[in-house]
């Protein structure tokens, strides 16, 4: 098999590594997501500050991991003030 033929999970691992770089780039700047490869499935979970950022992450993951099944569980940051305080005696 030549390098150009390389497909399957080995190659997907490299794509996953490059995905992290893509996500850290100018557009989204997200380093705090947990991205894992499970055979032909990719899971992405974490918290992002805005709907725009979530859409950008989902678009980039789908683009870079094209051909694999992508499952995302990305929640939006909760911007409400706390309803309690922790007492530190």
């Amino acid at each position: 098999m030549t390098a150009a033929d390389a497909t399957g999970s080995d190659e997907a691992e490299y794509r996953l590594a490059h995905l992290r770089d893509r996500l850290a780039d100018d557009e989204v700047g997200e380093l705090g997501l947990r991205i894992e490869l499970h055979g032909s499935h990719v899971t992405v979970r974490g918290t992002v500050p805005s709907e725009e950022r979530r859409a950008a992450v989902e678009r980039i993951v789908a683009e870079v991991m094209d051909g694999l099944k992508v499952h995302t569980d990305i929640v939006l940051a909760d911007d409400r003030p706390p309803t309690w305080a922790e007492d530190l005696p």
Partner: peptide, 20 residues
């Protein structure tokens, strides 16, 4: 005492700690 106040961790706009 150590507290990780990264917003995704505390799940709110901020956390509040009462010190005496």
């Amino acid at each position: 005492r150590v507290r990780n106040v990264a917003q995704p961790v505390i799940g709110r706009a901020f956390a509040v700690y009462r010190l005496h």
